[in-house]
Simulated assay, not measured.
Amino acid sequence: MDVQKPNERGRGRPKKGREYDADSLFEAAVACFAEQGFDKTSLRTIAVRAGVDVALISYRYGSKLGLWTAVVDAVAQETLTQLAVSREESRHSPLDEQLHRLCIDLVHLVNRRPLFAQILISEIMTSADNERKTVIEQKLANPIYGLLLKYIQEIRGEEETGAKDRKLAVVAAISLIGVVVPTRTFLRRFVPIGDEPDRLLEELADIVKQMLT
């Protein structure tokens, strides 16, 4: 997870724990938040999992919410960057291939961090915390939704004013990926293809493409 270092906090650097590694810390945070939920996860639990001193997390992020927000922001920026790269690389391909590439890359982006998708589902569906939902909306959902809608309009040759019917399709497609990918081990009970990860992702991308066509 490529991230920029956040603004430093406090007057002195904590001396305990291994050298700061944003990627390892963020991966540990995602795992803990997914397994225990935000409220039941402590900074100490995350620190132990990441192999750093808890004071380092407080020093860099200020609070558990600060760390959580930094994780959401990092995933959002990474996703937006990868989608932009995908769009640029396929821009001169036939239109059908452009849409297929976009759907494939979107599915694989979610598949890279299924635990993060699990966190989002839990926050959106079960959490009563409006502050975290606002963070998801502003830093992740709105930017990604807007970018995908723009790309699909470009591929389909649509004007923004004529794309109202496609907005729900974009939301539905993102939601489908976010639900199927983190629950695929359970889905194996109903869909044999669940035992074939590569084929599952490929067929999921095809379904998403149909939704967006």
Rank of each mutant, 00 (worst) to 15 (best):
I121N: 07
I104C: 12
L102E: 03
V135Y: 03
L99M: 12
A128P: 03
M125Q: 12
C103L: 06
L148D: 03
M125S: 14
Q118W: 07
T134I: 10
Q138I: 07
N111K: 05
Q138W: 01
N111V: 06
L102M: 11
L149P: 00
I119L: 02
L99T: 01
L115N: 04
K139I: 09
I124D: 00
F116Q: 05
S127L: 02
K139M: 03
N142Q: 10
L109I: 11
T126P: 00
M125Y: 14
V107Q: 02
L109S: 10
Q138F: 00
L115V: 11
L115D: 13
E137W: 09
I121T: 14
M125C: 14
K139Y: 07
N111F: 07
P143C: 09
Y145S: 05
T134Q: 13
P143F: 12
H100D: 13
P114E: 12
H100G: 03
R101G: 04
G146R: 00
I121L: 15
R113K: 07
K150A: 10
R101C: 02
H100V: 05
H100Y: 04
P143G: 09
A117V: 12
K150E: 14
Q118Y: 10
T126V: 05
L106R: 03
R112Y: 10
L140G: 01
V110W: 06
L115A: 11
Q118R: 14
E131Q: 12
S122G: 11
Q138S: 05
R132H: 01
E131M: 11
M125E: 15
L120W: 00
T126M: 09
F116P: 03
K139H: 05
C103T: 10
R112G: 13
D105K: 04
V110Y: 12
A141E: 05
L148F: 06
V107T: 04
Q138E: 06
I144P: 00
I136T: 13
K133N: 04
I121W: 08
Y151G: 04
D105I: 10
I136C: 03
I104S: 06
S127M: 04
R113Q: 13
Y145E: 02
P143V: 06
L140Y: 12
L148I: 08
I144W: 05
L147V: 04
M125L: 15
D105A: 06
I121S: 08
R112I: 12
L147K: 11
L115I: 02
E123M: 09
N111Q: 10
R113D: 13
